[in-house]
Computed example of a mutant assay.
Amino acid sequence: MDKRSLDTLGRHLQALRQARGWSLSQLAAQAGIAKSNLSRLEQGDGNPTLDTLWRLAMRLEVPFGTLVAPITAVLGEEGVTVQLIDQGRDNPPVDAYWMRCEAHTHRRAEAHSPGTREFLNVVSGKLMAGPVEAMQPLAAGERLDFPADRAHAYRTEAEAATFLMTIVYTGSDTA
């Protein structure tokens, strides 16, 4: 992520934390990250992983898209890139992302808030996706709808996959 995006993310993260009246120590402990790492993120330094950003969004009780909305950078690590396309303002909250998994990638995602659903529409390539215990094969033109309030994953084999991921927060307004 470029310096401008990191600065923007850091200011936004700090504002969300302070709006809740939480200290750095409180949020860091709840998100399972070091206080020094959270401090660096808020100062626009560091290189946050997708998992770190998801955990922060969950602990701040905001959709992932709300946390990253102020930045336009593509987020990525270890063969996975994610970019927020848009965030709905209705109820239930809806986030839309472009996601790409390079060949031979396995990405495990933490459970979202109760009632959350994911909808995947594959644009190119092939992947396995869904709840960890019930992953399904998908190819270009296919779609999958699954409960995202439990651990889920995305896995590619010999080819990359690009897909539209829509997250609907039906149980609450959190990630």
Rank of each mutant, 00 (worst) to 15 (best):
C101R: 07
D86Y: 11
G88L: 03
P114H: 11
N47R: 01
C101I: 07
V122K: 12
G32P: 05
L6P: 01
E118S: 13
P48L: 04
S39K: 09
L138D: 04
Q87L: 06
L164N: 14
L75Q: 06
V82N: 09
S124W: 01
G171W: 14
H12T: 02
G76P: 11
W22R: 00
H12E: 00
M58P: 05
S113Y: 07
D149H: 09
D149M: 05
S36C: 02
E77N: 09
G65F: 00
Y169E: 05
L138C: 05
I33V: 03
D173P: 15
L60R: 02
G44T: 11
A73Q: 03
F163M: 15
E159H: 13
V123Y: 10
T170I: 07
A28G: 04
T66W: 00
H106L: 12
A175G: 12
S5V: 08
A96G: 09
A31W: 01
S124Y: 01
Q26G: 02
T52L: 10
R108E: 14
S113T: 07
E78D: 13
G10I: 04
H106M: 09
C101N: 10
V62G: 03
T105A: 04
L67T: 01
V123D: 07
T66E: 09
P48K: 13
D95N: 06
L56A: 03
D145T: 11
Y97W: 10
L53H: 11
V68S: 02
A73D: 02
R150F: 00
K3S: 14
G115T: 05
L138H: 09
P92A: 11
P137V: 07
V80E: 11
W54T: 13
Q43Y: 06
S36D: 08
E133I: 10
R155P: 00
W98A: 04
S39I: 03
E102G: 15
E159D: 11
R150C: 04
L13Q: 04
T52M: 09
M58D: 14
A140I: 10
G65P: 10
E102F: 15
A129C: 06
G65K: 00
S23L: 04
A73C: 06
A73K: 09
L6E: 14
M58V: 13
R20C: 08
E78Y: 00
T8I: 15
T162K: 15
A103M: 04
D95F: 04
L144M: 10
A175K: 00
S25Y: 01
A153N: 11
S113W: 02
R89I: 12
N121W: 14
G32L: 01
V74N: 03
P114F: 09
T156Q: 04
R89D: 14
Q43L: 15
L13S: 07
A158D: 08
D45I: 00
Q136G: 03
L60W: 03
H106P: 06
Y154E: 08
A111N: 07
A28D: 03
V62H: 05
D86C: 05
L120N: 10
A19F: 06
W98E: 01
L164I: 15
V94G: 12
E77V: 01
A103E: 01
A160T: 06
D145R: 15
L67I: 02
G88H: 06
